[in-house]
Amino acid sequence: MGSPRIIMKLIVAGIHDEPGDVRVIELKHQRKPLLPTFEPGSHVDVHLPDGKVRQYSLCGDPEDLSRYTIAVKRESSGRGGSAWIYDQVTPGAELPVSAPRNHFPLKESGGPVLLLAGGIGITPILAMARVLCRQGKPFELHYFARSRSLAPLLRTLEESIGAKSLRLHFDDQVDTLQDIEGLLSTRPSGAQLYYCGPLGFMAAVARVSEHWPDGTVHFEAFQPPVQDDTAPEPFTIVLRNGTVVPVPADRSALSAIRAAGVLLMASCENGVCGTCECGYLEGQPIHRDAVLSNDARSHRFIPCVSRATGVLKLDL
């Protein structure tokens, strides 16, 4: 089960705009000079006034704990959280923010690191690049955007890590285009791949890195991959103590389990944060999350979005 994180009422200490409808928000603690430590790849949960929770990667320097920096892209077609933050949050405002959590850590490895970011997916990748750069480790960051004028955090990126490791690819500049299939066709010895970006980018990188060995490819998605459009079917959950919990077609496994009296923490309820993760003992789950690795899918389950056929026995 995902562990709970302390929630702090942070103050918006600074706001500035970046290209591509992105607003960078700096958050400080009201009383404490230092915030909890974080590793590159970490995100925080931002708690919105309507009770919703949204995850944002920390894109600042993990060595500077006087502030957390998040970048919010205004998505008018999204679920409303980012639009609310973009439109309503002003300097001095108070935002409830969880301590950081990391589902996208840099692995200890001696080999080269390949970082791929598409658009706003630069946020966790930027924090990783800052740390790799400081440690003097070999890495290459490929940043894909529609054009230079629409690429968020580009200046910060250029100032923080320099040109040596940075490769920029803009759709409107033919000489910068990069064929990712070619980029990933041969895996350099010992290399690790990390990528983050919008849905189409995620799907493309997943496809062309399929031949990389298990454990060498790491990613973070903003939303689960486009799902099959089959209608959800009812199924049945059995708890460890034998309690039978029917899950109707129009209800999530998470809400059915909670209604049965099990205290289960959850956060995004969209299959990306991993807070409600639990184990399953028997059955055929239909995984619809964007958190679990292929290995984990054999015994773990994300009840906020995933379903099952027939009977699923959970380790709860």
């Binding site: 709970p4 994180r5 302390i6 929630i7 702090m8 009422k9 409830p96 969880s98």
Partner: peptide
């Protein structure tokens, strides 16, 4: 000392 928190998990 007196301490309160507005909701679960809050500082």
């Amino acid at each position: 000392h007196i301490h309160i928190a507005p909701a679960a998990s809050y500082e």
